[in-house]
Amino acid sequence: MLNPDSVGSTFAGTDSITVSQSEIDAFCAVIGETDTTIAPPTFTIRITLTQFEEILTRPEIGLDWSRLVHGDQKFEIFSPVKAGDALTCAATIESYRVAAGNEIVSVRSDLHRDGKLVISAWSTLVVRA
């Protein structure tokens, strides 16, 4: 069970994650995108979900990642991501409730580049009963 005291708190992820051209190329290839100069709109989920897993499974937060289902996802993109960008991720646990034994957690991820907000992403994660 998620520690209810963590709701409303923001947790910093890994210091900095640098996006490589080969990562953008691989993502573009899957969806048939030929313009690889910027990352496709959902590319940063690669960073966000990894950071969420690292943060939310910390012992003091306690989410069970093994029974997780992705409920919904939203991106607000303020500036496109390019190769060479060094991004920092912060995760904010916005809400938490239990319904029919399922834990429903809404988490926001803010990715910053040089201190400026690049992308905010909201994920609803459901831990199945």
Binding site: V30, G32, E33, D35, P40, T42, L49, Q73
Partner: peptide
Amino acid sequence: MLTMALVGKYVSDFAGGSANVLEYSARF
């Protein structure tokens, strides 16, 4: 997220490139 990425390609094509996509959301 693969389904969402493919639909995102449809959005990028309409927008004239990924750089023009400002918001994008979906429920699975």
